[in-house]
Amino acid sequence: MAIPPPERADVAVPPPEGADIDVPPPEGPPRRPVISLRKITKVYRMGEIEVAALRGVSLDVLPGELVSVMGASGSGKSTMMNILGCLDTPSSGRYLLDGVDVRRLDETILARVRNRKIGFVFQSFNLIPRTSAVANVEMPLAYAGVGARERRARAMAALEEVGLADRAHHLPNELSGGQQQRAAVARAIATNPSLILADEPTGNLDTRSTHEIMDIFARLNQDGRTVVLITHEPEVAELTRRIVRLRDGLVLSDESTAGEHLHASDMGAR
C-alpha cells in the first residue's frame, strides 16, 4: 500500500470563507507556475458517507522549486499528490499543469503526461516484481516508444545517476529498501520529466538511505527539475526551500525557508 486511503476528516466546522491561501510567487520575475491548483476539492464516497479529503486547496509551484508537503495523516496530502500526478481527478477546482487544464485532457493524453512530464516516486517503491531493476527503469521509456537499444542506454544512465548501475540486473527482491527506492527514482527520471513527485519517498527507509535519496532529489533539483515531495519527517522537510503544511484538507501554512537550504549530507552531521 503506497497510498493510504483517505481518512475521515473529523472536523465538522467548515473552514471560514477565504481561508484558502493564494500563494504568490516567491520571487519577483513572473514565471508561469509548473503546478497551479485552484480551490481543489476531492470528495470520496464511502458507501453512504461522503468524505472530503481536500476542501479547497490552492497552490502554485514554480519551475525549479523544491517543495515539501507536510501534514498529519488524513490531512489530504496524498490525495493532493495523486491529483498532481494525474493519477486521480479532483471533484472540483482547477489544476493547470504547465498552464494546461488537465480536466480537458483525455485518457491517452493523460497517460502521455504521466509518462513524459511527471516522474512519480512512491513510498513503497512500487517496482514491478520479478523484473530486473534496469527493466523496471526501461518501462516508461518503452511506453514512450523509445527503441530497445536507446532505451537500455538511457535506463543505464538513469541508474548511473542514482548510483545503482552495478545492481542493474538484480531483481527488486534482491535489493535493499534504499536500493529499490533509488531504482524507483531512476525509473521516475528515465523519461527526463521536468516534474518529480514523491509521496513519502523516505517513509520506509532508514536514515542512511534517506540521506542518499534526499541527496538525489537535491541534485535533481539543482539540475533544474521541479521536485514536490511529501514527508512527515521535519528533518527531511527542512532540507527543502519551501514547506507547505496541510491540515484537514486545507493549506495551513506555506513557508519559504529560502536561504536556509541545507545539503542533505548536513542532516546526519547534526
Binding site: G85, E107, A111, R112, F120, Y143, T191
Partner: peptide
C-alpha cells in the same frame, strides 16, 4: 491490479 496501477502511473496508455 497493482502492477497495472504502477504501469499506468508511469505512463502506460490504455491500449498498452
Amino acid at each position: 491490479t497493482r502492477e497495472i496501477g504502477i504501469r499506468k502511473a508511469i505512463g502506460a496508455p490504455k491500449s498498452a
